[in-house]
Design a protein around this nucleic acid. Structure first.
Length: 138
DNA sequence: CCCTGATTCGC
DNA sequence: GCGAATCAGG
């Protein structure tokens, strides 16, 4: 490996960028040892071993049932497998997991459902009352 | 055992 | 000075 100013600069860049020695080595075409060794000699280094890109990524992806209030209507909207799946969220009837509107649909008198009303994925009768667990991302 | 970085040591 | 081998932490 020829450590000219250019390569050294790239090394420092990648190193500062939070890349692991292995990744830097791949991008520079050298082994991780070469990277670590050079970094050591350059003076820079001293990073926690399993350095992780603690940057962004992640976050604001798992949200749906998690932020439901105790009185939020749990009527499912959309496909549970779809990222945009959510719940009605409107204020539910005290003691019930659905708002008045959806409660009518959920608690059909003679097990008969309105034709245009989709059956709830999680029936209120069997769904956990206030402890709805976020089962997304599984 | 996998990963990581740190240090050693022959070249 | 270089980096594979080796060591050590997680």
């Amino acid at each position: 490996m020829v450590w000219n100013d250019d390569t050294v600069e790239r090394l420092k860049k990648l190193w500062a960028d939070g890349l692991t020695t292995g990744d830097i080595g791949k991008q520079l075409g050298v082994s991780k040892n070469a990277v670590v060794g050079k970094a050591h000699r350059l003076g820079l280094k001293a990073r926690p071993s399993p350095i992780k890109r603690t940057k962004k990524e992640k976050d604001e992806k798992i949200r749906s049932v998690v932020d439901l209030k105790a009185d939020s209507c749990r009527w499912p909207i959309g496909d549970p497998r779809h990222p945009n799946f959510h719940f009605c969220g409107k204020t539910a009837i005290p003691g019930k997991p659905y708002c008045s509107e959806h409660a009518q649909i959920a608690y059909v008198s003679s097990s008969r459902v309105r034709e245009e009303e989709p059956a709830p994925a999680a029936p209120a009768a069997t769904a956990p009352a206030q402890g709805a667990e976020p089962a997304s991302e599984s």
